[in-house]
């Protein structure tokens, strides 16, 4: 039984929640018993909890706040159920954090419990976000997030995009930048994530396993 904890962290607006929701669905199709916990208390919009109902229909557990809210609610209550799930040690858990090191601060609540389990902490990187656009910036963000959470990042996810305007070149340029980060920090690139239309065009030797993203948090007009 895969009862790993996957912690998804990254710069504000790097695509954590989209990845988390898609990742939860993917693990679910692999017949894993999945629980997605939305730990984003930094910003009450574009959070994975907004897809709560559709995920529950798929049999995925979703924990948001104690009020089980769905839409932008400015009530940053962390549910005690999250601690319970981590300690319960039966499910594959995805912890979707808020942006930046501020967003990983909340992990401090559980770091001892998490360390007792098998965990991966993936840092989502979109090199086209201004504050993670250089090797130095990415490494600085990584260090800060590790310091605040008390946990170590175990993999990078290249999620560099301009939404629907992304080109293959954009992803490839990001690949070389993140490879550099990977080399310096000795942390592997585990996934490259993109919309299907881009993913199909990426060369096979690109770093990381290809991971398809279906936009679920943004409306069609966004």
């Amino acid at each position: 039984m895969d009862n790993k904890i996957y912690i998804i962290v990254g710069h504000y607006g790097s695509g954590k929640s989209e990845f988390s929701v898609n990742f939860a669905k993917k693990l679910n199709t692999l017949n894993k018993s999945v629980c997605l916990a939305d730990l984003d208390i930094v910003n009450p919009y574009f959070r994975s909890r907004e897809t709560r109902l559709s995920l529950i229909n798929l049999g995925i557990d979703v924990i948001s706040d104690t009020l089980d809210s769905v839409k932008g609610l400015d009530m940053p209550y962390i549910s005690p159920a999250i601690r319970g799930q981590i300690a319960y040690n039966k499910k594959t858990i995805i912890l979707d954090c808020g942006g930046d090191n501020v967003g990983t601060r909340v992990l401090k609540q559980f770091d001892d419990l998490i360390k007792q389990r098998d965990y991966e902490m993936y840092m989502i990187i979109n090199v086209y976000r201004p504050e993670t656009s250089t090797v130095e910036q990415i490494i600085d963000m990584k260090n800060k997030m590790e310091a605040e959470s008390g946990l170590l990042i175990t993999g990078y996810i290249n999620n560099s995009n301009f939404l629907r305007q992304t080109t293959v070149d954009d992803v490839m340029n990001a690949d070389s930048l993140i490879k550099e980060v990977s080399k310096i920090t000795s942390v592997p690139i585990v996934y490259v994530s993109a919309l299907e239309s881009i993913l199909n065009k990426l060369p096979n030797d690109i770093s990381g396993e290809k991971f398809e993203i279906n936009l679920s948090l943004r409306s069609d007009w966004l």
Partner: peptide
Amino acid sequence: CPVNWGMKP
């Protein structure tokens, strides 16, 4: 405020 202080209770 353990959560926003980034500390265990």
